[in-house]
């Protein structure tokens, strides 16, 4: 999957905005939104939040976890544990990027947040590579990968699954007879 498509999925996550306009309830195909009243917080999908923000029609409220102290804890925990710790959002990376790109004026300490999230990401990707290597080395048949996010899986996933496919075929070489029909034309 393309990272832009993972981002597309992330854009469906609900965030809170404070609109500066009034609008009745909207009945979208994917669910109802609103009503919108100036100054009253309302939940909308991120794609709409960004659009409204770009048109200066709202202020964005950062998700609760997008906070230096909380993210420091998350980063430290991630560095301490060998396994993948649960993330505050399955789209933590995408939300951080999108919110900091489009609503940086609504998010305090944006630069620190960016660095903390990136550090956490890097730690997790390093772990992912470590587990990929041991999976290959042990020639394992199954791995449980709770708490990995779609974006994380996507950056290394294609490489890993393709390597495992090759390995599988090389292993079938050891069992002649089973798949030993060479192709004749």
């Amino acid at each position: 999957m393309d990272p832009a498509e993972v981002e597309f999925l992330a854009e469906q996550e609900l965030v809170t905005v404070i609109p500066n306009f009034s609008l009745d309830r909207i009945y979208l195909i994917g669910g109802d939104l609103g009503p919108f009243n100036p100054g009253l917080p309302v939940q909308v999908p991120l794609w709409l939040a960004i659009n409204l923000k770009q048109r200066q029609k709202c202020r964005l409220i950062a998700p609760e976890w997008m906070d230096v102290e909380k993210l420091e804890q998350i980063r430290d925990q991630e560095r301490k544990e060998d396994t993948f710790t649960p993330m505050p959002s399955p789209y933590y990376m995408e939300l951080t990027k999108l919110l900091l790109n489009y609503a940086v004026d609504n998010i305090p300490k944006a630069d620190e947040i960016r660095t903390l999230v990136k550090d956490t990401w890097d730690t997790r990707i390093a772990k992912l590579r470590l587990s990929a290597d041991s999976f290959v080395r042990q020639q394992e048949a199954h791995a449980r990968l709770d708490n990995l996010t779609l974006m994380e899986i996507n950056t290394t996933g294609a490489f890993l699954t393709q390597a495992l496919d090759h390995m599988y075929k090389l292993r079938t070489n050891l069992q002649p007879g089973e798949s030993a029909q060479s192709q004749d034309f």
Binding site: F8, I26, L33
Partner: peptide, 12 residues
């Protein structure tokens, strides 16, 4: 505004 939001959803 409302029509615009509907259009965006349709495109998605």
């Amino acid at each position: 505004l409302k029509v615009g939001i509907h259009r965006m959803e349709v495109e998605r």
